[in-house]
Design a protein around this nucleic acid. Structure first.
Length: 541
RNA sequence: GGGCCUGUAGCUUAGUCGGCAGAGCGACGGACUCUUAAUCCGUAGGCCAAGGGUUCAAAUCCCUUCAGGCCCGCCA
């Protein structure tokens, strides 16, 4: 590989140290920690001083990357087991391992802070105990960032800290990239997202957020399994996308020579399962929507969709409430949480308003008593987007709710009975003309869930999807395609069914107090910095 | 798509009504046997995100670009 082929600028710093900087010439952004050797011209953050140490260690016969270590105790176990230990060393021997965070050398002794998945622990090494060779090995070659295993006895220092008095240690992994500073740590938001592993190494709060996320998913599954719901996995690559109004990502299957879409929702497949006789089903699915990225949106996001036969939207509102209350209670230990300056109260029952009532309350008008002209005038007067082209009472209802109501809904609130125009998969209302049995859940001004009495009349469904398809052909980029196989499935008969979808990422935001979706996604979508390698065939059309 | 803000050493940052780019931590070398952001002495490390312009002189002022953050729009 030639230097001039790289999309970077290489700047020699010190011929002696063979160091160069790597800088992305397109963006001007310097790769984080971009020091590397002349022999290693790629986008690494390898530090030559550390690489030299590896070489020297090998010359001394040390295995720098051994295969295993007999770790018998975690940090937490040691701290709990020896919580009452005094200054005297324990009889019992412990064996533990982790990453070195800080080293404090004092001539012939060394203190270091070591961390594993359960916490941090101080270790103490003395030249007298280890012998000159071993002690010097640690002193000269072990750096912050390295992973070591230690065997020793536990004691409490004069300053009162539980500490492992090390009898012997083993280097388990040599780190060649520099760790961020020990006190301030890693704060740069962009680096935290782009190099999440580094964020996790350095920031306990971030680790805690993702532990909680994992726990929320486990609890959600437990809740549903306990109630005899079955979890399934339906196609992510779909020849026809559907189940929501959104622009899809497209891709191409080479062998089939066929266009495929990344799913925007699992809905239509899960309903096929209900047709097939599975009466209580759910899927924890990644959905992909080709939309903009902001504090509440990532192009791929997680959703749980739940369907249950012989239930309607009232039952699904109850279920949604139960799920949130259960998770809040188990995760937070209370039924309230603090989010973006609001105290959200999950205690049941939650407020339920029809969309008409919400518009009545927040816009101060009664839709049903107004003519289309009056509605349009009112909308234009308040500069409500989309009023020019709205042609039905239902469209105005939806527009007014979005404009006046949505952001006001801080405490958990169900809005129900949506207009039929923008609810092509929801069943017509049993008593109200022009409406469907559909609800959405709002909290902190965010849409958290969406559910309905599922449309199971195959003729009605066919007509409504045909209407969507006509809109799509007229240029509505988010209108749905017609999935005839799905319509045929309904044709065989789907029992009356209730369904709901809950946005997992926003739920995690709420329960962990993070007001950006990027803080609860391990690897949020970021724009690529530099072209490192020639682009492969992406499969894009 | 629109507005506001940010980018200085590996990390955290000072300097921004123009006048030689500073610090702490980290790294490297040395001293130190209960420290914990250890301490003390010394060394190296920056064309101030990139490109262009104004000026005797630009990290600083202007323009363009790149990346990120926040708000709005879009996402029912």
């Amino acid at each position: 590989m030639y230097i001039w082929d790289l999309p970077v600028r290489l700047r020699p710093v010190s011929p002696e140290k063979r160091q160069i900087w790597i800088q992305d010439t397109r963006s001007g952004c310097r790769m984080n920690g971009a020091i590397c050797t002349m022999n290693d011209m790629d986008h690494t953050c390898f530090d030559t001083a550390k690489i030299d140490k590896i070489q020297e260690l090998r010359e001394r016969g040390v295995t720098v990357y051994p295969y295993t270590f007999d770790r018998r105790d975690t940090v937490l176990e040691i701290k709990e087991r020896f919580s009452t230990i005094e200054h005297e060393k324990s009889e019992e021997e412990v064996s533990t391992a982790g990453r070195i965070y800080i080293i404090r050398q004092h001539g012939k002794t060394i203190f270091a802070d070591m961390g594993d998945a359960t916490g941090r622990l101080q270790i103490y090494l003395r030249k007298n105990d280890l012998g000159e060779e071993q002690f010097d090995l640690f002193r000269q070659y072990v750096d912050a960032g390295d992973i070591v295993g230690v065997v020793g006895h536990v004691f409490r220092t004069k300053m009162g800290e539980i500490t492992v008095w090390v009898d012997r240690f083993e280097l388990l992994t040599k780190s060649v990239c520099p760790l961020p500073e020990k006190f301030h740590g890693l704060k740069n938001v962009e680096t935290r997202y782009r190099q999440r592993y580094l964020d996790l190494i350095m920031n306990e709060e971030s680790r805690e957020t993702f532990r909680t996320r994992s726990r929320i998913l486990a609890l959600l599954r437990q809740f549903l399994f306990d109630r005899d719901y079955l979890e399934f996995e339906t196609p992510t690559l779909q020849p026809v996308y559907g189940g929501a109004n959104a622009r899809p990502f497209t891709t191409h299957h080479n062998a089939l020579d066929q266009k495929l879409y990344l799913r925007i929702a699992p809905e239509l497949y899960l309903k096929r399962l209900v047709v097939g006789g599975f009466e209580k089903v759910f899927e924890l699915a990644k959905n992909f929507r080709n939309e903009d990225i902001d504090t509440n949106h990532n192009p791929e996001f997680s959703m749980v969709e739940i369907y249950e036969a012989y239930r309607d939207y009232n039952d699904m509102m109850d279920l949604t409430e139960e799920i949130f209350a259960f998770l809040a209670e188990r995760v937070l230990g209370t039924t309230t949480c603090s989010f973006a300056g609001h105290d959200i109260d999950f205690s049941r029952p939650w407020r339920r308003l029809t969309m008409e009532e919400a518009v009545q309350e927040y816009a101060g008008i009664d839709i049903r008593t107004m003519s289309l002209e009056e509605l349009r005038d009112f909308g234009l007067e308040h500069s409500v987007e989309g009023c020019e082209s709205a042609a039905t009472q239902g469209e105005f209802l939806a527009l007014f709710f979005e404009h006046f109501g949505e952001k006001e809904l801080i405490q958990p609130t169900f809005i129900y009975d949506f207009p039929i125009e923008n609810s092509p998969l929801a069943k017509k209302h049993r008593s109200k003309e022009g409406l469907t049995e559909r609800f959405e859940l709002f909290m902190a001004g965010m849409e958290m869930a969406n559910g309905f009495s599922e449309l199971n009349d195959p003729l009605d469904q066919k007509a409504r999807l045909e209407l969507q398809d006509a809109k799509r052909r007229k240029g509505d980029l988010e209108a749905q395609m017609i999935d005839y196989d799905f319509i045929n499935a309904l044709g065989y008969g789907m029992p009356p069914t209730g369904g709901v979808g809950i946005g997992i990422d926003r739920l995690v935001m709420l329960l962990t107090g993070n007001d950006s979706i990027k803080e609860v996604l391990l690897f949020p979508q970021m724009k690529t910095l530099a072209r490192g390698e020639p682009e492969q065939d992406s499969g894009e059309e």
